[in-house]
Amino acid sequence: MRSPDLSQVEAQNEKPDAYVKVKDLQVRFVSREATVKAVNGVSFELKKGEVLCVIGESGSGKSVMMRSLMQLHPKKRTRITGEMKIGEHDIMTATDKQMSELRGSTVSMIFQEPMTALDPLYTIGDQIAETVMRHEKVDRDAGWKRALELLELVRVPSPERRLKAYPHELSGGLRQRAMIAVALSCRPSLLLADEPTTALDASVQIQVLVLLRKLQREMGMSMIFVTHDLGVAAQIADKVAVMYAGRIIEYGNARDVLMHPEHPYTRAMLSSTIKDQKKGAQLETIAGTPPDLRALPDGCSFAPRCRYAGPDCFETMPDEVTDGRGHMARCAKVNVVRGLLAFEPGIPAAPALA
């Protein structure tokens, strides 16, 4: 019997429905003093219409990974290796001109602080219309008409008046909505959101989150949402990736990761929230500090802060352990039983999220 062609087998095993593909992404910032290893072998896939939330402490590499997808890092001091694809577009080989065309039309980004992304010298209407005119090759009247439609879409009150306003004349919530309008102006298929609600009041945060999720579903966009807020991830994510020291250390469906976390870091983060905690109970904290990205340890980067770490954890980087549902944890303390991933007895359960 003739053995099957290896290339045919590999083609059958590929996931054609994956729209965003990142494999072994490495990002280094190089200077005379040192090399900062900001992202260290990140891999994930995202289907069309899915929302991936990337969570972790400040400095874990979330924003660096996100900006790499748009090639926004300074080329002279940045070294990027690995694979990045959005649809049929290879981000690693794209020229500056090609990336300029892709930004806005295929992939767009909402930044954490809109005042750093919006030009203070131009009105909101000018900035939205310019983006539309550039990518859709329409005249100024059509650009302004589209700008008005977008402000209505993101529920900006009195949109005709806001079109003529400058960024500093709007509240934080309205500026963020205007930034969303700019990001959606050319109907991108992938939306990147870098902690877009962090600088907003709690009530405005909820409004913006609900709006983003609604627009994402209506437009059928894929979305990568960076946050350190577990509650945000629980509300909007289809999948969750937990990052630490530039690596994804846990990944899977949002419910699996947030309800049944398998990495000590994820469990520690969940245990440090007020959700389902008894009144007056002292919240847990994660001892120590994240590692220096200029000199990462040989073993698990979280080992110096982990109460369950053994000698082997300090010597070798743990392998990824994945169950049948695609729930992955990179931890030497995961006890593998087919169909069940659990920690050794004695580890307290993480608080449940609704």
Rank of each mutant, 00 (worst) to 15 (best):
G87L: 04
E88T: 09
H89I: 14
M92G: 08
T95P: 03
T95E: 12
D96E: 14
K97C: 03
M99L: 13
S100P: 02
S100F: 07
E101I: 10
L102A: 15
R103E: 05
R103M: 07
G104Q: 10
V107Q: 13
S108H: 12
Q112Y: 10
E113K: 07
P114K: 05
T116Q: 13
D119C: 08
Y122S: 06
Y122N: 09
T123P: 05
I124V: 15
I124M: 12
G125W: 01
D126F: 06
D126V: 04
A129W: 08
E130G: 06
V132Q: 02
R134W: 08
R134P: 00
H135T: 07
V138Y: 13
A142Y: 00
G143W: 01
K145G: 14
K145D: 15
K145I: 04
R146H: 09
R146Y: 14
L148P: 04
L150G: 08
L151V: 12
E152R: 12
L153Y: 04
V154L: 02
V154E: 00
R155V: 00
P157D: 13
S158G: 01
K164I: 11
A165N: 11
A165W: 10
P167N: 12
H168M: 10
L174T: 14
L174P: 04
R177K: 10
M179G: 07
V182L: 13
L184V: 02
L190K: 00
L192A: 03
A193N: 08
T197M: 00
T197P: 01
L200T: 11
A202G: 03
V204P: 04
Q205V: 03
Q205S: 06
V210Y: 00
V210T: 09
R213F: 00
K214M: 01
R217M: 10
M219F: 14
M219K: 12
M223Y: 06
I224A: 07
V226P: 08
